[in-house]
């Protein structure tokens, strides 16, 4: 590891200045669970590291009926999954933030960092996409918003320009009769990287016996160079009844959209197979939650949830 300048600004303005001065040679530090590992592996050799944890705006976590959910870029996972508002309204985000690394990692790692790191297999990103989240960004030219599905531009690269940083992630409060779920496949029960991940958010209409999908969003992890929104799979469900068949059809569309590679975590063909399995399970979990049923996540079930429409 090369030596570098460590800075810890307390305002966004100061942070942007420190970042802008160094351009590509500056890196933002939040929890550091990716950055420090990457520095040690010499993936980056920055001249300046800008620790943003002293900046109030990036540490805020709030849920309000009007503004929805706002997650500061440095808010660690453990605060997210311990938050009553998030638990109640954004169970799919709880699913994801509980399985990023282990307990110690979750004490530091932030969803903002998970997003900026732009790994195709990031667990939180498909969940954020499913909830329709936006990234709030600040830079030398002021603030701008980027839809999370457009934020990642390739493995390890994102839409931030030199001098820009992520401030927060925000998303609207889900309507009644809606639910979200994220799950991943790993061959072990913990401490692993998604072979495939799937997040779904659904809003249901109709009566309890004859539910229909009003809308649905489905996003995938680890099957493309970036986390993938499969808009057409969600669209295929709009106005359709909630049945095994409509869900299977949406899963088949997701399988078509996936562009997996073969690597040490799994062969491409198997990943495509898993997209079908996990998309169905994510949709069923989301539907059950929309119906007010309890759906355990990977930690609550120790990897053994049951996925059947009731």
């Amino acid at each position: 590891m090369r030596d570098f300048e460590y800075t810890a600004p307390s305002t966004l303005r100061e942070a942007v200045k420190l970042l802008s001065e160094k351009g590509e040679a500056a890196r933002v530090l939040a929890g550091g669970t990716d950055l420090i590992v990457q520095l040690r592996a010499r993936r980056f050799q920055p001249e300046r590291v800008v620790d943003v944890k002293n900046i109030p705006e990036v540490n805020e976590l709030s849920v309000s009926p009007r503004k929805g959910l706002r997650i500061g870029a440095a808010v660690p996972c453990h605060r997210i999954y311990a938050d009553e508002g998030v638990k109640e309204q954004f169970a799919g985000l709880t699913d994801a933030s509980m399985i990023i690394g282990g307990i110690q990692i979750q004490g530091r790692a932030s969803l903002g960092g998970n997003l900026c790191n732009a790994s195709p297999s990031a667990d939180s990103i498909p969940a954020l996409i499913a909830y329709g989240a936006e990234a709030e960004v600040i830079g030398p030219d002021g603030k701008r918003k980027i839809a999370v599905e457009d934020f990642c531009t390739g493995p390890g690269s994102n839409a931030l320009k030199p001098g820009e940083m992520l401030v927060a992630i925000r998303m609207p409060l889900p309507k009644n009769n809606s639910g979200g779920h994220y799950l991943r496949f790993i061959p072990r029960n913990e401490m692993d990287i998604a072979v495939v991940g799937a997040g779904a958010f659904v809003e249901l209409g109709g009566r309890s016996k004859t539910r229909v999908f009003k809308s649905a969003r489905i996003a995938l992890a680890a099957v493309a160079p970036t986390p993938l929104l499969v808009a057409e799979a969600g669209a295929s469900l709009e106005g359709q009844p909630v049945t095994e068949e409509t869900i299977a059809a949406a899963a088949a569309i997701a399988q078509e959209a996936a562009r997996p590679i073969s690597d040490m975590r799994g062969p491409a063909e198997y990943r495509r197979h898993l997209v079908g399995v996990l998309t169905k399970r994510a949709l069923i979990g989301a539907v059950k939650r929309a119906n007010g049923e309890f759906v355990p996540n990977a930690v609550q079930s120790n990897g053994h949830p049951v996925y059947q429409l009731s």
């Binding site: 072990r188 913990e190 990287i193 990897g303």
Partner: peptide, 11 residues
């Protein structure tokens, strides 16, 4: 140890 998948206590 992340990708060389030894069983953990949860497995």
């Amino acid at each position: 140890f992340l990708d060389y998948r030894m069983p953990t206590s949860l497995d």
